[in-house]
Design a protein around this nucleic acid. Structure first.
Length: 933
RNA sequence: GGGCGGAUAGCUCAGUUGGGAGAGCGUCGGCCUUACAAGCCGAGGGUCACAGGUUCGAGCCCUGUUCCGCCUACCA
């Protein structure tokens, strides 16, 4: 036990840094791969290596830390594994921007040097987020930190790629993908954000080839793509046009004629003109239709998103236009083409139209559907559907989604999932483990203008080998593309544990990996925000099931997004981002953590208001001052270690507080089991402040003054406080660790102290009854009178307590001193049928009637007070009587309910009678008084 | 278009075998009461979005409506 006195106000800065360092030094959070304790494991949702801590991370990490610390204290072998992902596009962008300052591009450095440069950047300024997580108190096993580009994880990525390829689940195909012209790479479907905007819908008229007077009108929001049209589709059952199917139209501005086809899937007769232009090279739906009808495909743009000459020539665009459009963006081309169309009399109509536009989720550039060879994962292959297995796992409850309401979303997405484009045309990431033979595929290995290598569509990939199958040659070139970052993130729950163990570098490494995987896979729970449910969670489930034959985690706890006080999503562009580090500086980390925990109700976003944080900062201070109070009341002779669970206590308040604490422990345990962080936080808050501080410590002031009761009182308040600290530690690790040192002889660390356990048999009903019904109820009754009549606490009151029998009288006599002190009473007289002084306020509790003598001046106030109370009673009584008067109620409601209602009715009636009598009595007194003077 | 969620005190939100409408913050009144004014004591404040239905009884179950948010797919 430390002698040093506590400061009057809790100062978080003074303790937070110290403890995180100490915890780390002592390796308290290291999870052994060999342990007899039951395992509990969480892998962190890897934050982005370029990222810094925002409130979403703070919430996410706080919740994980609460679980980790709670389970650790409960005796589990806890692994909370930290790490980051390499964030291919984002990181490459960061370093390219740095280079740009010196007027350089990545091609100036070359691939190897550029990647070297990124590693340097990472070493210097990457991953600051993990340091910030430490400040938050995250009890990760930092010795097991992982990074998706680590050697081990890279081997896992390669293994997975090769195996999926062998199984036919990865293949190369040339088709439309989402191109971000700024990032110059393909994106997967979900990396495209859709944004609504007001655009224009243009109606064009394509003349019939055999009779130009006739023609079809088509509508489009992107008229510039018309140069690449390869057909016009109508509905085969549309009587207006179906006789034209098989004929041709002349495609304006080109020298081509294109067929009219019938396509019931693409065309909605009721919409627009009823005819649709088909551009398989620039539109996903058209591409599908094109496949159905074996149409050709023209792609006007290149990787830079710009139109290029060769494509225009191929599409037989009129020659004067070729010159004008070469090197234009599609958007710039629109203006030119519209002019030409108008001139040619083809543009029939322009109207406003609400549409949505796809943008790159990283850089917000408008994405272009772009035809190019890419690698895809077949996620829904008949006979071996990764998606189907992932759906089944959730449907069969092998994985629990919490809250469950996410399931329909998950199922809906998984059931409509399309192939996953996994290749990216960037340098930072896992280079695709595929090679091509330089001699056999000579013609397919191309150089682009910027110096990049391109592998053409029909090259023969060599996967899992280092020699060419056809020529036996070893002069190979690796596929220049890298894999989607999410491809490696999808392996995170097992790649971080050392999978595949058999390719670890040495025997010791293999053994460790095997042990870790055995011990910690499947992980216990994944804690994540819903916005990456599809990006990441769904893919982990697919990969985990496929490669581990077992789910990656049992529970998925999906928490909310943190929004600002107005409910707006925080974003840099809106400027409403609240920096959690700033909040931690101002209110303390514990206060922030407690706020986040107490607002984490399932299925609802968190609108973070600073008032709330301030409230919990005050709570920190409250607890701190409770500690001070205890410290200041330490008896001269230090007493022996306190009875830990409260056996054999004499004092009724001591028995009561132990019993209440035990109930709180149970409710916290149940709440945490159910991921109800908000309920757990509230239960602790309520008990600590409103039961322990407001009542128990105040009552204990009486016992501390008495030689006979002092020791037990002190040891109980210490024991309960010490258990509050442990109960609270997962939510407020810093302050509880600090205070712990003041309350333990041989402190060790609270972080690894046992978590309080509930003992059903320790409930002390009789103590609860005495304290609640005799002590608290009586004190409250006096306080109500005081408060409602504005009698200041400095004015001590006299009270007469009228009780039913001797037994109750004895109970009150025994608690007299508590009543005196907390109700601020000068004199307390207790008796059976004790006489009521004529001029007094009255109150009633379940056990007694109280009379508080008042002077004449206050009698008027008392009448008013009684009338107000009476009004309330009358209202309640009316409701109850109406209920009981209804024969259907008495006949149909359960007996208990009817009985309860009757009892309440009786009580209210009694009260009402009392009020009437009392008010009359006082009024009579007053008129008597006035009559006398 | 499909899906999900929300609407309860001035604000932020709890509230499941259907029977008591609650918490924190703010507001008002009284307090330096020997841990804490970041505190203590008390008070006021609600047509539980709207309209129906089921039921003896609905914040809760059912149907519809309105408004708000998000996800997803997009109509050329």
């Amino acid at each position: 036990m430390k002698e040093a006195n506590l400061e009057k106000v809790y100062d978080p800065k003074a303790v937070e840094e110290k403890w995180m360092t100490r915890w780390e030094e002592e390796k308290l959070f290291h999870a052994g791969s060999q342990s007899d304790q039951p395992p509990f494991s969480i892998v962190i949702p890897p934050p982005n290596v370029t990222g810094s801590l925002h409130l979403g991370h703070a919430l996410n990490s706080t919740l994980q830390d609460i679980l980790a610390r709670w389970q650790r204290m409960s005796g589990k072998n806890v692994l909370w594994l930290p790490g980051m992902d390499h964030a291919g596009i984002a990181t490459q962008n960061v370093v390219e921007r740095q280079l740009a300052k010196d007027g350089q591009g990545r091609h100036d450095l070359g691939r190897a040097a550029f990647i070297e440069r990124i590693w340097e950047w990472k070493a210097q300024s990457g991953g600051s987020i993990l340091k910030q997580l430490k400040r938050l108190g995250a009890s990760c096993d930092w010795s097991r930190e992982r990074f998706t580009m680590d050697e081990g994880l890279s081997r896992a990525v390669q293994t997975v790629f090769v195996r999926l390829h062998q199984e036919g689940l990865i293949h190369r195909d040339k088709r439309l993908i989402n191109l971000c012209p700024h990032c110059r790479t393909a994106l997967s479907d979900i990396e495209v954000e859709h944004e609504d905007l007001q655009g224009q819908l243009y109606t064009l008229r394509y003349p019939l080839a055999e009779d130009p007077k006739k023609g079809l009108t088509v509508a489009t929001t992107r008229p510039e793509t018309m140069l690449a049209d390869t057909a016009v589709a109508v509905h085969p059952e549309d009587p207006r046009f179906n006789q034209w199917i098989g004929k041709k139209v002349t495609l304006p501005l080109t020298n081509r004629e294109i067929p009219i086809i019938g396509d019931p899937i693409l065309v909605d007769q009721a919409f627009g003109t009823g005819a649709v232009k088909i551009t398989p090279g620039h539109d996903f739906n058209d591409e599908k239709s094109g496949k159905r009808h074996q149409l050709g495909k023209y792609s006007l743009i290149g990787w830079d998103g710009k139109i290029h000459r060769a494509a225009l020539l191929e599409a037989e665009v009129e020659s004067d236009l070729v010159q004008e459009l070469d090197q234009q963006t599609m958007l710039a081309a629109r203006k030119i083409i519209l002019e030409k169309l108008d001139k040619a009399g083809v543009l029939v109509q322009t109207e406003e139209h609400l549409m949505s536009l796809g943008k790159c989720y990283r850089c917000k550039t408008v994405v272009e559907p772009f035809d190019s060879p890419q690698w895809f994962v077949k996620v829904n292959e008949p006979g071996c559907s990764l998606a189907q297995e992932a759906v089944d796992a959730v449907r069969q409850k092998k994985i629990r989604l919490i809250p469950e309401s996410w399931a329909p979303n998950y199922f809906g997405w998984m059931e409509n999932i399309e192939d996953w484009c996994i290749s990216r045309q960037i340098w930072w990431g896992h280079q695709i483990p595929v090679w091509y033979c330089k001699s056999c595929d000579h013609g397919h290995i191309l150089k682009t203008g910027s110096g990049d290598t391109m592998i053409a569509e029909h090259a023969t990939p060599i996967v899992g080998e280092r020699t060419c199958q056809s020529c036996g040659g070893e002069d190979l070139i690796q596929d220049p593309d890298v894999l989607d970052t999410w491809f490696s993130s999808a392996l995170w729950p097992f790649s971080t544990l050392g999978w595949p163990a058999d390719v670890q570098l040495d025997e010791a490494g293999q053994k460790e990996a095997q042990a870790l995987l055995k011990q910690f896979y499947p992980t216990s729970v994944l804690v994540s925000a819903f916005d990456i449910l599809f990006f990441w969670i769904a893919r982990m489930i697919m990969m985990g099931l496929h490669f581990m034959k077992e789910v990656p985690f049992r529970d998925v706890y999906i928490h909310a997004l943190v929004r600002d006080a107005e409910g707006q999503k925080m974003s840099k562009s809106k400027g409403n981002v609240i920096n959690p580090l700033d909040l931690m500086d101002r209110y303390g980390t514990d206060a922030l953590r407690f706020t986040l925990a107490s607002m984490a109700s399932p299925g609802r976003d968190i609108k973070l208001s600073e008032d709330r944080i301030e409230g919990y900062r005050n709570f920190c201070n409250k607890l701190w001052n409770a500690a001070r109070f205890i410290q200041m009341n330490r008896p001269e002779k230090i007493n022996p270690s306190p009875p830990s669970e409260g056996d054999g206590l004499q004092g009724v308040c001591n028995r009561w507080i132990q019993s209440r604490l035990n109930e709180t422990v149970q409710s916290v345990d149940v709440s945490l089991q159910n991921y109800r962080f908000d309920e757990a936080a509230q239960a602790i808050y309520q008990f600590t402040w409103h039961t322990y501080c407001d009542w128990y410590l105040e009552l204990a002031k009486v016992d501390l003054q008495n030689e006979a009761t002092r020791e037990e009182s002190y040891s109980t308040m210490t024991a309960v406080f010490e258990r509050i600290l442990r109960l609270l530690h997962p939510m407020m690790p810093f302050m509880t660790e600090e205070l712990w040192t003041h309350f333990q002889k041989d402190p060790g660390f609270i972080a690894v102290a046992p978590y309080p356990k509930y003992h059903a048999e320790r409930r002390d009903i009789s103590a609860e009854d005495v304290v609640q019904e005799v002590v608290i109820a009586t004190i409250l009754a006096v306080r109500h009178v005081r408060g409602e009549m504005n009698i200041p606490p400095s004015e001590q009151l006299q009270v007469f307590i009228n009780v039913e029998d001797k037994k109750v009288q004895a109970a009150f006599e025994a608690q007299k001193t508590y009543l005196q002190r907390l109700a601020r009473l000068s004199e307390v007289s207790i008796g059976v049928g004790i006489e009521k002084p004529p001029m007094s306020a009255t109150a009633k509790t379940g056990r007694c009637e109280l009379y508080l003598p008042l002077d004449e001046v206050r009698i008027r106030d008392e009448i008013e007070r009684l009338k107000k109370r009476q009004d309330k009673v009358i209202k309640s009584l009316e409701i109850l009587e109406k209920k009981l008067a209804n024969p259907k109620f008495t006949a149909n409601a359960p007996v208990e309910v009817v009985e309860k209602t009757k009892t309440e009715q009786e009580q209210f009636r009694e009260e009402q009678t009392r009020f009437i009598t009392e008010i009359e009595h006082l009024q009579h007194l007053l008129s008597g008084e006035s009559g006398r003077t």
